[in-house]
Design a binder for these strands. Structure first.
Lengths: 211, 211
DNA sequence: CACAAAAACAGAACGGATTCCAGAAAGCAG
DNA sequence: CTGCTTTCTGGAATCCGTTCTGTTTTTGTG
């Protein structure tokens, strides 16, 4: 019956393997994109066997999610260490997301892979995806707060802003929009944070034939 | 040199194959989700050989994109045939998207597959994806207009609204948010259409360290 | 109708993700 | 140190998307 596997590594050696896998995967992705990340290859570069690789990450996509988890988790501690500049919550969030987008532009292939996996809908991913989005949300919340806590309305809107950000990035990656267009979308999306009367009555608009 | 392949079928028999493939794929997806759609299987149900299937659709994901294309294209003609009810552009778009979401809820597995593929970023998909999004956009534009043409500002915002809609759907599918939450996000996103002064000065907010 | 080109077919072949297996290595209680 | 459990390993096996091959229709044209 026992066969848990180190979703979270405990010993130092295990931490090492976990790290080496993520590091190797990151550089492979950055260099050649998702096609260049092959599990056999990755296991060799990380110095573990294929079976072990699969013990640490039950699927290739989980490696990508692992990268996201690790990146957002360190980004969160970095960001919460300081107070983001900006006069209003909207300004701070806008500035932060524009900077995040600028950073993503530097690693297009890596970003493409990570953006793809974060918008998966398979149930086997949802737990990790939720964790990742939660980290990002915490980051946005801290950025928005600028020290003082934010309003409940704004908190409610942050996931939407986050979604707009993700979509803007994806549209840029897919070649559908230019970086300038993406920045525009981010800026516009952040304006939601200034919206008055956010709580809208439910289901007043559902009359009419379905699509 | 000759080996074009019927990206768009010309003869009746080809139309038939193209249709049978999409129909079979749709029902397989609706029944069992993406995992239940296997190319060999699909080719048999559609009554074509694997090679022919691949002549019509160069990859599995292209079958999904084909479904999207066909669905949105008939939805577009259906929607443009009438005038969507609603007092303002925002109301009409909100209502339309809420109905579209309701329709998607009825076929969760199918929707999951289609939502996933539409947010791919691989360059080989971008042309078709752009077509699909263009159809959806045309539909939104018609809905928004309600007869008279819409403002340039609103036109600029429709892609963002579209992206919010897609993200809301995905978040629901991934189990990250409830249907009510998704509807909330759609409604809030549509409020962008009422935003004043949409044209924002570029890059006033980029100071500070990158993420 | 006959013939060349294009399209379709059945099935084998290939590649990469994932799984399975039997043995070696590492960690740990006594 | 010894025995026992867990982890790791190399490599074979499996599954499925995709490609390839040789052959058989189908189509278009004179």
């Amino acid at each position: 019956m026992p066969q848990a596997g180190p979703a979270v590594p405990s010993t130092a050696a295990q931490h090492g393997r976990h790290d080496r896998i993520l590091t190797a995967a990151t550089s492979m992705l950055a260099a050649g994109g998702e096609d260049a990340l092959q599990m056999k290859d990755l296991s060799q570069r990380a110095g573990v066997s294929v079976a072990t690789l699969y013990r640490y990450f039950p699927a290739k996509d989980h490696v990508l999610l692992g990268i996201l988890l690790s990146r957002y988790s360190s980004a969160l501690t970095r960001v919460t260490a300081e107070i983001t500049p900006g006069a209003t919550a909207r300004d701070r969030v806008t500035g932060h997301l524009l900077r995040e987008f600028r950073a993503q532009q530097r690693e297009p292939r890596l970003t493409a892979a990570l953006s793809r996996v974060i918008s998966e809908t398979r149930r086997s991913y949802s737990e990790v995806i939720e964790q990742v989005e939660h980290l990002h949300l915490q980051m946005l919340e801290h950025v928005a707060s600028g020290g003082a806590p934010i309003s409940a309305e704004q908190r409610q809107l942050l996931p939407v802003v986050q979604a707009i950000f993700g979509a803007a990035t994806r549209r840029w990656l897919a070649g559908v929009s230019s970086p300038a267009q993406a920045r525009f979308e981010i800026r516009v999306g952040c304006r939601l944070l200034d919206l008055p009367d956010v709580a809208v009555a439910e289901d007043a608009l559902l009359a009419g034939p379905a699509n």
